[in-house]
Write a protein that binds this DNA or RNA. Sequence first.
RNA 1: GGCGGUAUCGUCUAGGGGACUAGGACACGGCCCUCUCAAGGCUGGAACACGGGUUCGAAUCCCGUUACCGCUACCA
Length: 483
Amino acid sequence: MSAIHPRLRFAPSPTGYLHVGGARTALFNWLYCRKHGGTFLLRIEDTDKARSTDESTRAIFEGLHWLGLDWDEEVVYQGAQVERHQRDAHALVASGHAYRDFTTAETLERLRAEATARKEPFKFDRRIAEYPQAELDARLAAGEPYAIRFRVPEGSTAWDDLVHERIEFPNKDIDDFVILRSDGTPVYNHAVVSDDIAMGITLVMRGDDHISNTPKQILLYQALGAALPQFAHLPMIHGTDGKKLSKRHGATAVGDYQHLGILPSAMANFLALLGWSPGQDIEVMMRDEMIARFDEHKLLKKAAVFDPKKLEWMNGQHLSKLPLDDVLPRVVPALVAAGLTTDADVAARAPWFRTLLDLLRVRARTIDDLVRQATPFLRDAIEYDADAVAKQWADRPATRDLLDAAAGVLAPLPEWTPAAMEGATRTLAEVRGVSAGKIFQPMRVALTGLGVSPGIFEVLELLGKERALARLHAAVRRLGEPV
RNA sequence: GGCGGUAUCGUCUAGGGGACUAGGACACGGCCCUCUCAAGGCUGGAACACGGGUUCGAAUCCCGUUACCGCUACCA
């Protein structure tokens, strides 16, 4: 049943950014190929010149690159295939599977309007396109424009969908559809089939909004005398309100998530779980594991709702579970972009940066979170968070006294090690008769300006003795000032 | 309207006739851990759309209803 060498394609039309729905379709195609040793192809469906832009094409490439979905052969541009589309269409005319239709758009519109007025469904009557041979020749000779319509045969068309199993359509419900417009350009269904045949596609995996197109395409394959590929129709992705995902739902382009500080592996992991489940309660998967576990037979039929909250959680998981070396290339540029450091600085203090980011990443959900938390460690001056100050520095004189004392016991330490710092501060707490937390919390605010940070001794160590003491003194000074 | 598709906690899902007092995850609440947060552990509430069948037995199979989605273009 399965082809010897699977060839799959992702075929977006470049009329916008790379949508998360499209990204997920691409992901499943890619996963299938990587899992089964297939070839993953990319085809840009730019037949609609009015809506297609190079910018969109670039956005699609970028989105795919970012997600790590690499294609195996040169990109195919559908717009460059029109000659073949025309050839195939005329071949169908020659073989009797299609016919020329001289009916003008205006006439069609009128007939449709009339049918609607009569409350009848409009159905194209192929008899209005039939002319005696002599008249046909005359119209042709006169150079009258005509569209080419497919002659839908009697019977019914069915296929065994990889996710839906058997689907069957009575052919009587399918109108004779246009495959080549009167201006010589191909219509979608025809272009797709012609291209898929030419590209040797063995499995067409796409959104289930194409289910109704499939019988038309199958008919085309058969008329063209080509072998049928397998079909797999993936469910759609909806917004939180259950409607098809659109701009109204906020971020829907993969690029949006990239800029929101999401890691590509987390995005891929999250997307893969929309419409597929590896079972065994497995959720978090790194790339290789995802490929290993991917199983097209476990694809789901039901549309899924895109939940940004879960995406964030997933990102937090990846942020802390990925090898540090895989997350640094994503985080360092963000730090540089925020003006907190430079590549040269990172290179010069690599071990320090690794320690810092390793400590920070477990408590961040997005790269943006991480950048925010790294700020006090990379700037000379810190900003005090009002809430943290209000909470931890409520009793200003007492806090001032405690911080002063803390600086006092830390300053003489011969070695700036966590063990030494902990000993000194805990002893201080004992002497003062307060819990250790009563010292650590105000210190945290003094050292980072924030109410949240890694362990206090890790913070002290990361900051270094000089800067740490300076911040404690600054806090003491600040607490001495009138409010 | 016609045709097609779908239907388990708010959300993502496990489940493919008895193992289901329906499991996990996100989110939400509580507790533990603890110098804060995150992570982690424990824990609470929360679902088989409805109605008929088939069967000794149905979340699982069949039919219908309802809801939602898609196609019905010389759009893709």
